[in-house]
Each structure stands twice: as structure tokens, then as C-alpha cells.
Amino acid sequence: MAVLTPREGPETRRPDRDGAERESGPGESARRILLVSRDEQLDSLLARRRVAAHLRDLRPVPGTSDEAPPDVALVCDDEAATARLSASGVPVVHLYSGHPGTTDTLGTAGATDRALYRVHRPGWLPDPDPTRAPTGLRPTGVLAPVRSARSRQRAGTLLLLSLWDVPAAEANTFVDTTLPGLVHEALRRTGRCEVVCDLRLTPIRAALAGLADRPEVRVSRAVDVDVDALHAGARLFLAAPTLGASALAQARRAPLVFLPPLGGAQRDLAARMRRLMPVPCADDPRDPGVWAPPDEGVTTLWDALAPDLDDLRGAQRVARTLRQLSLAPL
């Protein structure tokens, strides 16, 4: 659950847990919001932060607060939290953040008339199986970062890895055999590598022994860094095929290279995107094409998804719903 923490630095700091940048003071809103996500799931964490960045007029409260119940809650993926908050009378927007793949079902466990259900789905991505969609589940469009600009002096590689819901054997094989080669090549070709993961930080550090001790390499959990800011400053972006990662590149119309997909949901999303646009895949760390994605033609690349400016406003759309719900609960 969301807990406010001090800010540290512009790119290396641990971000505020609600993802927003605000200063408290006498003019702070009396309306209060609880922000909940699965911080061990990359998409869930990024979804909460991106929506929260548009909620500066609401005051975030920690989940352990002894104060009165919040006026509204954003819950990303945690169905148990939605059921608990709804039962206590708190209006909830429940947001499913990740791509469900072909086997997972988006359920509405504990659904009540005090909860509204949303799913992170860009306009270019049709529902994998409309017959399985629960009644009342609305797509958001792209949950884009609050800032679309990238640094003019970009450097190094951001390697964004998600091991959420990936079978253990598959995750172990990738971490032990593929990841070290990617980091080694990133160092050799771009001089610096930022490895960000949602799970398995200790095995990843062990697999990168000898590399992770170098100042040019940093290994972090996504919950401890500002992923969107790191992307803005990176020259190359290698990412697991997730909605949160693809939204970064799409909103900024930036180059994107997929890491080898892990798990059914990543494989399904990668296949769907690559049917629409030729996203390179880092299957072979020694492939020069992985490390030199052309800056020219990137705009044309994203044009293949027929980007609609309104579709990039998914985070604003969810924030507006939360604001309205805080004023006029169901």
C-alpha cells in the first residue's frame, strides 16, 4: 500500500510511493485517497504511479493510517484489497494493469456497487477474448508517463525486467544464462547499464557477480527507483514485453527492443505487437541490431499503431474518475 517517503534525487531517488510530486501545506486538499498496488508486479506499480501523478489535488494516506477511511481508493490488481475496502464503504476504482494473455481471466472477485473496474488496454490492443470480459470492465487506453520528454543527453542502457507470473524454471534460466550476456554487451556498447526488476533481485545480483560491483552497472528493484525518469535519460531501452514498458516507448515515440518474452502473457503481448510493428527482440546479445536501433524511422514505427492522442490519456482518465468518485460516491 502507498506510504509517502522523502524524495532523494532527480533520477536515482526512491520516488514517492504514490508517484506524484507534491508539497504538503495548509492548502492541501481535505479529500483523501488510498493508493494500493502489487509492488512486486512491474505493471501494477507503474500503473499506480502514473495515475497518482495526476491526483495532486487529493491527499494520499498510508494504508496503516488510524485516520477515518479515505474518501476514495485506487487499487491496482489487488482484488482482496478491493473487496475489503468496498466492504468498509470506501468507493474504489479497481485497475487491472497487465496484459492478461490468453489463459488468465480478469475477474471481479468481491465486486460491489462501490467499485468501478478498469483495465489497462491501449486502443490498438483488442480484448484477447471479449467473451471472458466481466460486465462493467472498461478499457483505459494507454497509461502513459506524466512527462513525455526525454533527455537531450541520453546515455547508457535501461534494461527493464519483469518476472511477475513467470514460471520459476523459465525465470532462472533467463537470469542465469541470458541476462549476464545482455548486461555485458550493454556495458561494452553503451558504457552503462541500469538493470531494473520487479522480482528476484538477489538471484539477479548473484548472476551478475563481477558486473554488478562495477560503478557502471546498477541493479535495482522497480519500487526503489523512478522507472519513467530512468527511461527519459537512457539511450537504449531493452524491456520485457509488458504494457507498462511499451507505454513508455509509445508515449515518447522512442526506440524499443524487447527482451526474450517470459511466461504466457509476455509471449502473447510480444506476438500481438510484432504483428503490428517490427519491434526488435534481444534474442542474441551479440546481434549489433539490438544495440543500434535506428532513431530515424521511430516515428513511423509507432505510426503503425495509429496512435491517438486521446488514447494516451489513460492515466488522466482514471484520475478523473477517482476525483469524481471522491466528490460523489456511488
Rank of each mutant, 00 (worst) to 15 (best):
T64N: 06
T135F: 12
P255W: 07
M1D: 13
L159P: 05
L55T: 02
A249Q: 05
L125E: 10
T177K: 04
P180D: 07
P167S: 05
D127A: 14
S65F: 07
Q153P: 00
R150K: 02
V92G: 02
I33H: 08
Q250K: 05
A80F: 08
P145C: 07
G289Y: 01
T178F: 04
L301P: 05
A239K: 01
H120K: 07
E11R: 09
R114L: 15
R138M: 14
H99K: 03
C281V: 12
R267P: 00
R274F: 15
E194K: 11
D287W: 04
L309C: 10
R49G: 07
T103A: 14
A315N: 02
G264C: 08
L269H: 05
P180L: 03
V146Y: 00
D78R: 09
R192A: 13
G107Q: 13
F174T: 08
G233P: 02
R17T: 01
G89Q: 09
P139N: 06
R189A: 03
T202S: 15
R221F: 11
R150M: 08
D71Y: 06
L106M: 08
F237V: 03
P91C: 09
S151V: 00
V93D: 08
S29M: 11
G264E: 15
Q324A: 15
W124P: 00
A271V: 11
V257Y: 11
R59T: 14
E296I: 08
V183I: 01
D308F: 10
V146H: 12
R192F: 05
L58R: 12
P293T: 03
G123Q: 09
E28M: 12
V196R: 01
A209M: 01
P134W: 12
L276F: 08
P134N: 07
T321Q: 15
A239V: 08
D165S: 14
T178W: 05
V51S: 09
R132K: 15
A80D: 14
V3F: 12
R152C: 03
R235S: 12
T299A: 14
L42I: 11
R132G: 05
D213A: 07
L243E: 06
A169L: 13
V75G: 02
E28F: 06
M273Q: 15
D39I: 04
T12W: 10
G27A: 12
G136W: 12
L259V: 01
V146M: 00
S220V: 00
G63P: 03
L248Q: 14
C281M: 11
R84T: 14
V93T: 10
R253W: 07
G233D: 12
P329D: 07
T103N: 03
L125W: 05
T173R: 03
E28P: 00
P285A: 08
T178G: 05
V146C: 01
L305F: 13
A80R: 11
T5L: 10
V92Q: 10
Y117M: 04
M1A: 14
R275V: 11
R56F: 04
V279R: 03
V166D: 10
A81L: 01
R275K: 14
T131E: 15
